[in-house]
């Protein structure tokens, strides 16, 4: 795809670039090589294993940016299917929250591209976020008692229960870590690794799963990116809706009020209460607030990684 300079742009003299070419390079390792060889100037997603090599490359600049497939302030989130056992029981959801080692996920799967989430709103959305919520630290030793309390005692083979974890193939490594974490507390996780389209259909349209996973992006406002996951009226057979099937009239009411309130302080208070309720009830389990690196060649100047106008003032050394 080739974008050509708009000569009638309303800011005189801008942009500087005459042409911008977007190229799809399906193989991530090929894309990184293209950047290293100077065939490409800017790369907006980098495979974790390549980060160190690019950091060591003097011709390449790395910048952190909030990242996710669907926009900004994204949280990779486990979806508990609340409509059927075992996740209809709060204790089971809490046990999962304690058993899953998110620090391990962050280091081994995300290559430290992100941070551990604390709740339904990303910490980078500072005005609406509160850290003052119920936390579930990684303490697998607390899981057995919780599972006992929900009636899932160990069988003769030591297993307490089995759940089917439906996920897109892009989450395969996340899923493997989770399966391993849960095996340690007597929970067998059967992985159903599907291609993206098929996974979306099975989780959101057919609701045929125990455990699912998706990247839910909060941005640019909680009303747009957060509300849809929790409203009882948004339990619909469409992708990235309320996949858990969560119903709580108080939550519905708070979101409705926040949506029609103008004052930011008042809205924030409502979102804070929402975060406190949701972290108590864990209808989802928020894993990692994903961040990614963008990489560009050092000849490229004045890129604005953070803003919507990535290229307005960008120019390239040797071509200006």
């Amino acid at each position: 795809m080739v974008l050509t300079r708009n000569d009638d742009y309303f800011k005189g003299g801008l942009p500087y670039l005459d042409r911008v070419i977007f190229k799809v390079i399906p193989q991530p390792s090929t894309a990184v090589l293209a950047l290293e060889q100077g065939e490409a100037d800017y790369l907006w997603t980098i495979p974790g294993p390549d980060i160190r090599r690019l950091q060591a490359n003097p011709n390449i600049v790395l910048a952190r940016a909030p990242a996710g497939p669907g926009g900004s302030f994204c949280i990779d989130t486990l979806i508990f299917n609340l409509r059927r056992p075992p996740f209809d029981r709060l204790e089971v959801r809490q046990a999962f929250a304690h058993a899953i080692n998110r620090q391990q996920l962050l280091e081994q799967v995300y290559f430290n591209q992100g941070r551990i989430a604390t709740g339904p709103i990303a910490s980078t959305m500072a005005w609406a976020y509160t850290p003052d919520v119920t936390r579930y630290d990684h303490s697998p030793e607390r899981a057995p008692a919780l599972l006992d309390g929900a009636g899932y005692r160990p069988g003769p083979d030591g297993k307490r229960l089995k759940v089917v974890f439906v996920h897109a193939s892009t989450y395969a490594r996340t899923a493997e870590v989770i399966r391993d974490n849960l095996a340690r507390v007597g929970v067998e996780v059967e992985l159903a690794t599907l291609e993206f389209n098929a996974a979306v259909e099975r989780v959101f349209v057919r609701a045929d799963f125990h455990l699912g996973i998706a990247s839910y992006c909060n941005g640019p406002d909680p009303e747009i990116g957060v509300t849809r996951m929790y409203l009882s009226t948004n339990i619909k057979p469409i992708p990235f809706s309320n996949g858990a099937g969560y119903v709580n009239p108080r939550i519905d009411e708070l979101f409705a009020r926040a949506a029609t309130t103008v004052d930011e302080g008042a809205r924030a208070a409502m979102y804070h209460e929402i975060q406190r309720i949701l972290t108590r009830e864990v209808p989802y389990w928020w894993l990692i607030e994903t961040e990614g690196y963008r990489a560009f060649r050092k000849e490229v100047r004045d890129l604005r990684i953070w803003a919507g106008d990535l290229l307005e003032r960008a120019w390239r050394e040797g071509t200006r």
């Binding site: 926009g71 259909e201 619909k236 469409i238």
Partner: peptide, 20 residues
């Protein structure tokens, strides 16, 4: 026969039922 739907890619996030 293959599971999936072209619309998930086309519409993506945030569409409602009537749009679909």
């Amino acid at each position: 026969l293959a599971p999936g739907d072209p619309l998930y890619f086309l519409v993506g996030e945030g569409g409602d039922e009537s749009y679909y």
